[in-house]
């Protein structure tokens, strides 16, 4: 089974106080720690498990600057066989439609049976690239996979619906599947493991190599443009309880007692 996984290098923001940058169109990224997008981490794990079971190769692909190499190295350390990074200075001003086109042009040159992507990214969360890429490659897709099994030349996929419901669908290979978090338990890689993976080559490709014209990338080719980002104004701001942990705990107890909860 030849598997391609598309990954994204993103800032970790879950427990960080974010600030807006000078352009007003993005967050201030200096000082943030970057890592593989959480959904993609599950996708890479799933690909490696399939390879371990059925044989074949896993190729990871990203579109990004040199910084993204650390994410590719992590994937290589986990067990991916090859890594490709597509790069261009206009990538920062390109929307997900362009990224999908760039990926499709790259993947057209590579033989594959299965493409996996994360169901969405933790930064802008469009949930667009997977099915858009499938359409550009003229292959079927299934999104939000929670379980994948193979049957001849088909894949049986459990998709996550709302409220804990799932549906089972069958799709013919070659196909693209987007992975939902929780499908597996991504393996941990040690720093040593990542160091060892330094020996594996990361192939870099420039957009010019892909035959995309000047008007197809950057602002000109994009469907959507961020005009402004902002920290939301508060609708029902909590009343903050301040003091030492001791004082805070006492106040919490007062509040829940006064409400008759305990």
């Amino acid at each position: 089974m030849e598997i391609i996984v598309c990954v994204k290098h993103v800032p970790e923001t879950a427990e960080v106080e974010l600030k807006i940058d000078k352009t007003g169109r993005d967050i201030e990224k200096s000082g943030l720690v970057f890592d593989i997008n959480e959904w993609d981490d599950y996708a890479v794990e799933e690909a490696i498990r399939i390879k371990e079971k059925l044989g074949g190769n896993v190729t990871v692909i990203t579109v990004g600057s040199e910084d993204a190499d650390s994410t590719l190295r992590k994937c290589l350390a986990k067990g991916a066989d090859k890594a490709i990074r597509i790069t261009d200075k206009r990538i920062n001003t390109s929307d997900p439609y362009i990224i999908a086109k760039i990926l499709s042009k790259t993947i057209k040159e590579i033989p594959f049976d299965l493409i996996l992507t994360g169901a969405q990214s933790s930064d802008d969360g469009y949930a667009f690239i997977g099915p858009a890429l499938a359409e550009l490659l003229d292959i079927p897709h299934v999104t939000l996979a929670k379980k994948i099994e193979f049957k001849d030349r088909s894949v049986i996929v459990n998709r996550e619906l709302e409220g804990g419901l799932e549906e089972v669908v069958e799709v013919e290979l070659p196909a693209l599947i987007t992975i939902q978090t929780g499908i597996n338990e991504p393996r941990y890689v040690s720093i040593m493991g990542i160091r060892k993976a330094m020996k594996k080559e990361i192939k870099t490709v420039s957009i010019d190599d892909l035959g995309l014209s000047e008007t197809e990338v950057g602002i000109e080719g994009s469907w959507i443009h961020v005009s402004e980002v902002y920290i939301p104004s508060i609708e029902r701001r909590a009343e903050f309880i301040r003091g030492t942990p001791e004082e805070v705990a006492s106040k919490i107890i007062e509040i829940i007692k006064s409400r008759g909860v305990i």
């Binding site: 469009y126 997977g130 099915p131 858009a132 359409e135 939000l144 998709r159 619906l161 959507i224």
Partner: peptide, 24 residues
């Protein structure tokens, strides 16, 4: 809808029609 159904449908529909899509 940006739902389990909508995310399965909208991106490929938009690409096939070449109509700009904005999600979520």
């Amino acid at each position: 809808g940006h739902t389990s159904y909508g995310v399965d449908l909208a991106p490929s529909l938009a690409v096939s029609l070449n109509i700009p899509l904005i999600t979520d």
